[in-house]
Nucleic acid binder design. Structure first.
Lengths: 238, 238
DNA sequence: GAGTGGTCTAGACCACATA
DNA sequence: ATGTGGTCTAGACCACTCT
């Protein structure tokens, strides 16, 4: 077996829901039926169903069953951690990346706080413009703790840094804290982006942690107002 | 026993983390130790720890233990479903609500889609201005399916509608889908809010579902640019 | 009463980290 | 080798819905 049992059940059910084989507001097989179908124990089935519920695929109702939610209505895929490349590809848009700045720096006091490092810890600084449909709409300012990313090149930054980090370096991204707000545009924004007369810009600050709970990346992503959108699925209580 | 065992373990650990009794980057007792401490089974302890992990309180590391995360750094509490009243109270700010419009209407075609109803289903329409520090900064446009909210009054709308829905009507809010973007200001915005010369406004669309998976509320919340902020904690993968 | 999901148990084996 | 968290099992009892 290559995979965890509960994961394969989860993935199979996701596939069935996304493909329309299981339609919104219809009932899933009961837990006992799934136990027989997958020849496993009930807790394992329940683990898969809990994941489906938390990710917005189904609603479990006690005494009745598990019902498929209409996932087609909210699948604009920025919920969670998604790289620009993944996003652009999902939306089927032509896209590109321009590396404006690439350097190994000694962090100033503000960045020391943000990355939780001292001035002696070298930090990679990468400033990139994201282009979609021929327009420069996002300015990404990435800072990586060199302790966890010993080698980085301009060529890697032109592609997907995350692919490099996960596949080549084997880093495991575990969680992130995101923060959004609207800020005034800076000279830097005007230099690197196609702004209209906008005085404001949407800022997404992103603190990314590895699976050993160490902070290794701080990113500030500046989005043109008209090109920003975020979708979130949230369950209440616990 | 008034509560589920795993919930009480979860809540006790949350309390210890928030009070500083368990400090960031220290280790939690191991699962086996917690089993003894709470006189329960390991799966029950694990259920509590999984919740702590998903809510950003701890990081579990295989072979090592569970470590407390620094929750003080990201506690601006808009992650998830939080009412304006709860938020204002948490921030300790003086606040108020002005009910601009309160009516029972027949939904137009756009609203029919948004609330998933027909023109024959009556809908409560509530437009409220939220005031903080003497400034009108948020315009809330709420629409409730009357099927689930048979009675509503202007007085209730001046307080917390959610308190009424949950405590008096016994409705159980289960999940919500949120969507953010920046829109241009309308005449309505200018009428009900203290806008400076802003041409734009942050729009949060919120679709709220009950625990029977029925959509019962659609809210459009329009925030003045300089007063909008959103914080999100996201775990990657599953 | 039969069927559903929710909680809980006691035990097993595995993968990984540390010494 | 020991201790840690990750997965899985087979069974139990409960709360709820529907007929």
């Amino acid at each position: 077996m290559y995979e965890n049992k509960y994961l394969s059940i989860y993935e199979e059910l996701v596939e069935k829901i996304q493909s329309g084989q299981l339609k919104p507001s219809t009932k899933l097989p009961s837990e006992n039926e799934l136990v027989k179908e997958y020849a496993t124990s009930r807790e394992t089935v329940r683990k898969a169903l809990t994941m489906l519920s938390q990710n917005g695929y189904i609603q479990k109702i006690r005494g009745k069953g598990s019902y498929v939610l209409d996932v087609s209505k909210y699948d604009f895929p920025i919920s969670g951690l998604v790289s620009f490349k993944e996003l652009a590809q999902k939306m089927g848009k032509p896209w590109g990346t321009i590396v404006n700045e690439f350097a190994l720096i000694s962090p100033d006091s503000q960045l020391q706080k943000q990355l939780n490092v001292t001035e002696k810890d070298p930090v990679w600084k990468v400033i990139r413009t994201r282009v979609m449909d021929g327009e420069k709409i996002i300015l990404d300012k990435d800072f990586f703790n060199k302790k966890y990313v010993p080698i980085l090149t301009k060529e890697i930054c032109e592609g997907s840094i995350y692919e490099y980090l996960e596949q080549d370096l084997g880093l495991k991204i575990s969680f992130a804290k995101k923060e959004f707000f609207v800020d005034e545009t800076t000279a830097e924004d005007r230099m690197f982006l196609d702004l209209q007369d906008d005085k404001h810009i949407v800022v997404v600050k992103n603190y990314v942690y590895l699976d050993n709970a160490n902070l290794f990346q701080y990113t500030e992503s500046r989005h043109r107002l008209d090109k920003f959108r975020f979708v979130d699925f949230a369950r209440r209580g616990h």
